[in-house]
């Protein structure tokens, strides 16, 4: 019986290993052909031109900008929601609010994208100008999408703080708010940070919703109302039609994305370990 469990456990490890292997074997030669610096820092993406240019710096920036925007929106709303859920919310409301947040996590990303394209894009176009497909729209949409991740992890981090921290604060004459914000919250910091990092991971890897609302222009960002193409969007948009070096460049884009995700996961486990200690 133990063998069955072992095989099950090895399947996931094997998958990760195979994906790593596939990405690096297929992606590295392409990157070498283009030149690592030309590839990572090049600002021109014109795969169908002759000679072609394969610079993914605009897409790297695109992913970072959109993720940063999502974090600004997602963390500010998510953190307050988590504090509210853990420390302020009456049980009656918690019973409604918590499942609502969980539903948000279960909505497929293409549905978020559809909401974005039907509601948010025209809204931004009408009231802010531009075409509506922009960094702003994508950030807000992603911010909403990462809410459940941040709320879930942050709430359990806050709840994990021993009750005597809060009671001690009250005993020293602090109000409820002061006790929560200055005694409980600092103790939960590393747990909350872990939630934020997990949110970053989700935001940077999100594809479908972003493609629908970000405009996907492969050029350096021009402002919050201008569009942008992310790394994930670059792969999905062009994979279907790509051939030869173009295809290799897209797989190499996947390698860059994969390295980003690895770094984020590493950061996450470091934070987790610190929290455990």
């Amino acid at each position: 019986m133990e063998g069955v469990f072992l095989i099950a456990a090895l399947t996931s490890i094997l998958s990760v290993f195979l994906i790593c292997l596939f990405l690096f074997v297929n992606g590295i030669p392409g990157m070498a052909k283009i030149g690592v610096f030309n590839f990572l820092l090049g600002t021109e993406w014109a795969p169908t031109d002759t000679p072609a240019s394969f610079g993914i710096f605009p897409m790297i920036l695109g992913s970072l900008y959109v993720t940063a925007g999502a974090i600004i929106i997602g963390v500010s709303i998510g953190l307050f929601t988590a504090i509210f859920l853990a420390k302020f919310c009456p049980e009656r409301i918690h019973r409604v609010l918590k499942p609502a947040v969980d539903i948000l996590a279960g909505i497929p990303s293409v549905v978020y994208g559809f909401f974005g394209i039907v509601v948010m894009v025209p809204f931004v176009r009408t009231y802010f100008g531009g075409s509506g497909s922009s960094i702003l729209t994508a950030s807000v949409l992603l911010g909403i999408m990462i809410l459940p991740t941040i709320i879930g992890v942050a709430e359990s981090a806050i709840r994990a703080v021993p009750e005597n921290y809060y009671e001690g604060a009250l005993a020293l004459g602090a109000t409820h708010e002061r006790g929560v914000f200055f005694a409980v919250l600092p103790a939960a910091t590393s747990g909350i940070m872990a939630g934020v990092v997990l949110g970053i991971g989700r935001a940077i890897g999100e594809t479908m919703a972003v493609i629908l609302v970000a405009g996907n222009q492969a050029r350096m960002p021009t402002g919050v109302l201008g569009g942008i193409r992310t790394l994930t969007a670059n792969i999905v948009l062009e994979m279907g039609y790509a051939a030869d070096l173009h295809r290799e460049a897209l797989i190499a884009t996947g390698v860059v994305l994969f390295v980003f995700i690895l770094m984020i996961n590493l950061l996450f486990s470091l934070l987790k370990r610190r929290q455990a200690r």
Binding site: S131, S133, I211, G215, N216, Q217, A218, R219, T222, G226, G227, R229, V236, L237, G240
Partner: peptide
């Protein structure tokens, strides 16, 4: 134009 929205 690089400003063109790219849609698949």
């Amino acid at each position: 134009t690089k400003e063109a929205l790219t849609i698949d």
